[in-house]
Design a protein around this nucleic acid. Sequence first.
DNA 1: ATTGAAATAAACGGTAA
DNA 2: TTACCGTTTATTTCAAT
Lengths: 151, 151
Amino acid sequence: MELDRKNWAILEALQQDARLTLTELARRVALSVPAVTERVKRLEEAGVITGYHADVAPQQVGYGLSALIGINCAQPYKNRLLDTLRAAPEVLECCHVTGSDSYIIKVVTRDTRHLEAFIGRINHFGETRTSIVLSVPIPPRAIQPCTPDGT
Amino acid sequence: MELDRKNWAILEALQQDARLTLTELARRVALSVPAVTERVKRLEEAGVITGYHADVAPQQVGYGLSALIGINCAQPYKNRLLDTLRAAPEVLECCHVTGSDSYIIKVVTRDTRHLEAFIGRINHFGETRTSIVLSVPIPPRAIQPCTPDGT
DNA sequence: ATTGAAATAAACGGTAA
DNA sequence: TTACCGTTTATTTCAAT
């Protein structure tokens, strides 16, 4: 799909605030409401925009501890591991990756005791390596236009 | 802040679709529009809801490769590393963590060449360990109510 | 409940292939 | 001319007072 300057302006605005009204969005990108509505619809249908999500602060809802867990899991166990992860409310995200870990899992837990219990439930699938999140110096931020090349 | 069943229903709905109108949200959680409006405002002010963001698919906008990079960086270099990361459009998120890595960085690049160039710009700050993302079996998902204890 | 704002849908006009 | 965007207008829905 073609991403001209206007489309990038729309993406930038909606990544920053997904609850913008179409009217306000139209004003910001200097288009009419129907034009911007049509563009947003196309971006959604083309799979460029995959969803709109409210961010909830884990700390504020009882999860005092976040962690990234790498796990090295042998092929025959992978499906059962994923089933376990999908069923665990502590798991916020899971990536299949190259390198010494098979998967990297983002989890939230109440405290260290809860984290220990969670790890206990998965470490028979493989060796785990846990990195507790101390802070997030760069919180999730917007994807920017890809420069043609170079940098 | 108190999170009763209604508030969790609101959080669940807005995590799933941040662009719900207040009218539709009210209908789903079985409250009046003013009541739900007030609750959302309180959740925002209490820092429970920290923002609303559109998700953009990196693959669809020219970033063919995602990676998680761990870097072990000595204390005196940390600030300069963070400045570099903040200035890099490839960096989507960065966590300060415990363990063998100091930081874990989520990046998007056009291709392996671009990834190599990015690593080249940061690996003088410390030793890097790159995990290329093959797939995301569990995409980012909603935070659920914290069970009192146990599990 | 009332008022103003915003979203949806339809018809019209300009521009480029 | 055809095909494609964008604009304008009118109607319905939504949100704040």
